[in-house]
């Protein structure tokens, strides 16, 4: 799931040639121009490296924190099928976090450093996960809207100029589409259910619609990173372009469900062939990003508690590895098993 364009300070003010000769910078720009991929050991401008570290680690954190709102419903999923699906989805999000942390590490940042930044609150992650999941319909709305928005954001990153990030995104996008479909299926079941179930689905849409639109990041007019990231081919579309695409495909889906998008200003623009939305409340977005969303504290506390509770396991594993020379317990080979069985009578 879940990358988000977040505006936070970066060393972008630095000239592209910092730390390298103009010739290297020139060659780098040419490679980007030719749509070549940049690989970990290739020369790259420091600002490009830092921009990627920031974006990929925020993306990874979002996957990890993103497990929490949905994990909340695993024990209360309404059927065994729904529970199995939700576990698989949450496990995927964890896996996506792992692919992305690995990609970020190729740029020279340690996993422990990124984790520390998340746990001490310095790192940002997608604002969407600071909203609570109050009902089962929220699990449907997250799959349908939040994963839908994430896919819209992520597909262009499959063509990102940085090889490891692009490869991680290809893998993630492949796995992601079941997430969105299972969410829509939940919404459909509720929408076709009792009046109470329909109300639950509508309530979830009401609460998740605007935060989903905010997932695309600030509007182009106030996005400070977009231009440079597009020049570097980290980004291929602006925040507003992607948001518009999302609105255009999602509104008809809401209509199919018989639900109402909570935007009285929403209208179809025949001339532009787009749905036009009312204004987005960016003060809410900023407040959530700054740590004042409904669940910011709770999410970080849950991550910290998990990290601390797992400390003894990590220590034990490291001690075991040190004792056994880093290979760990080997599975008994078939030959061993056979010979032991054959020898067994002699020991009796």
């Amino acid at each position: 799931m879940y990358t988000q364009a977040l505006d936070s300070p970066t060393p972008e003010g630095r000239p592209a040639t910092a730390g390298g000769s103009a010739a290297l910078a020139g060659r780098f720009e040419e490679r980007i121009e030719r749509d070549e991929k940049i690989e970990p050991k290739d020369w790259m401008p420091e600002a490009y490296r830092q921009t990627l570290i920031r974006q990929i680690s925020q993306h990874a954190h979002s996957e990890i924190v993103g497990m929490l709102p949905e994990g909340n419903w695993i024990t209360r999923a309404p059927s065994l099928r729904r529970k199995a699906v939700l576990i698989a989805k949450v496990q995927d999000e964890g896996g996506h976090g792992m692919y992305l942390y690995s990609a970020a590490e190729t740029l020279g940042v340690a996993r422990s450093e990124m984790l520390e930044q998340l746990l001490d609150g310095r790192a940002k992650y997608s604002s969407i996960f600071n909203y609570p999941t109050l009902t089962w319909a929220d699990v449907g709305a997250i799959g349908w809207l939040v994963d839908g928005a994430a896919i819209m954001n992520q597909i262009p990153i499959c063509r990102c100029s940085y090889g490891p990030y692009a490869r991680a995104m290809v893998r993630i996008c492949k796995e992601e589409s079941f997430h969105q479909r299972q969410g829509f299926e939940i919404m459909l079941a509720l929408a076709r259910g009792t009046a109470e179930q329909r109300a639950m689905a509508q309530d979830a849409l009401n609460r998740w619609w605007w935060p989903s639109l905010m997932m695309f990041g600030p509007s182009d007019a106030s996005s400070t990173h977009t231009a440079q990231s597009m020049r570097w081919r980290i980004k291929r579309f602006t925040n507003d372009e992607l948001r518009q695409k999302f609105v255009d495909i999602t509104v008809p889906q809401a209509e199919f469900l018989g639900l109402t998008v909570p935007d009285p200003a929403l209208r179809w623009d025949e001339a532009g062939q787009h749905y036009l939305t009312g204004p987005i409340d960016w003060s809410e977005f900023k407040a959530v990003l700054q740590g004042n969303g409904p669940c910011n504290q709770e999410r970080l506390q849950a991550r910290r508690a998990a990290h601390e509770a797992g400390a003894w396991v990590r220590e034990a594993a490291a001690a075991y590895a040190a004792k056994h020379g880093g290979r760990g317990a080997q599975p008994r080979s078939a030959a061993d098993t056979t010979s032991q069985r054959a020898e067994a009578p002699r020991h009796e």
């Binding site: 896996g95 690995s102 490869r167 594993a317 075991y320 317990a329």
Partner: peptide, 19 residues
Amino acid sequence: VGSLHAADARMAIEHARDV
């Protein structure tokens, strides 16, 4: 296919299975 952290080789195989 990628990389991961593990305490030892056996755990790396188990994590690779999951990831």
